[in-house]
């Protein structure tokens, strides 16, 4: 599936290292969710990545290319899978920390900034190639929306489940 002219270089290495590290960390962390919840969180991460790469990357928007070709190849698919554990970590650490009424606001802001730094790193190694005037800063609202949606999942599927078990 690797097209001609595509060589194994920094972007493929970045996807491999990040993916393996993220999945290993996920498996090593103490379990806090049941299997169904874990699978759903991994799917949320993969869905968000697949959705945006198949929406913002296509005509008439065409704002960036993922990896070496404009077409979806094996490494693009691997990058969709790589994003899975980040939705898990986002919810995992939110469950762990002590919360008050404003925690979610700061928590989402910090995660959006971390995501921007990670995207800058990915752009630097060649995972993303911006086009048509797209800039890194434009991803910030996307991250804010996506992280808020994941927080909604936490409130409706994880927190309510915990309250039910306690009752």
């Amino acid at each position: 599936m690797i097209p001609k002219g595509t060589v194994f270089n920094s972007n493929e290495l970045f996807i491999l290292i990040t993916g393996v590290t993220a999945y290993t960390a996920m498996l090593l962390l103490p379990k806090r969710f049941n299997r169904q919840q874990t699978i759903t969180m991994l799917l949320i991460g993969a869905f968000i990545s697949t959705f945006f790469d198949n929406t913002v990357c296509i005509n008439p928007f065409n704002y960036y290319n993922v990896n070496d070709t404009p077409f979806t190849d094996f490494w693009d698919m691997l990058s969709f899978v790589m994003f899975g554990p980040f939705a898990y970590f986002f919810i995992y650490f939110y469950v762990v920390i002590r919360k008050n009424r404003t925690t979610y606001f700061f928590y989402i802001t910090i995660w959006a900034l971390i995501s921007m730094i990670a995207e800058a790193l990915a752009w630097h190694v060649g995972v993303y190639h911006y086009k048509n005037g797209y800039q890194l800063f434009f991803s910030l609202p996307i991250y804010l929306i996506v992280l808020t949606a994941t927080m909604v999942y936490y409130h409706y599927f994880i927190q309510k489940e915990c309250i039910k078990i306690k009752d």
Binding site: Q36, Q37, I39, T40, L43, I44, A46, F47, T50, F51, F80, Y153, Y156, F157
Partner: peptide, 13 residues
């Protein structure tokens, strides 16, 4: 609800 969400995500992907 969990099964519906799972199904939505998998079929969307």
């Amino acid at each position: 609800r969990e099964e519906n969400l799972f199904l939505f995500l998998t079929c969307s992907i």
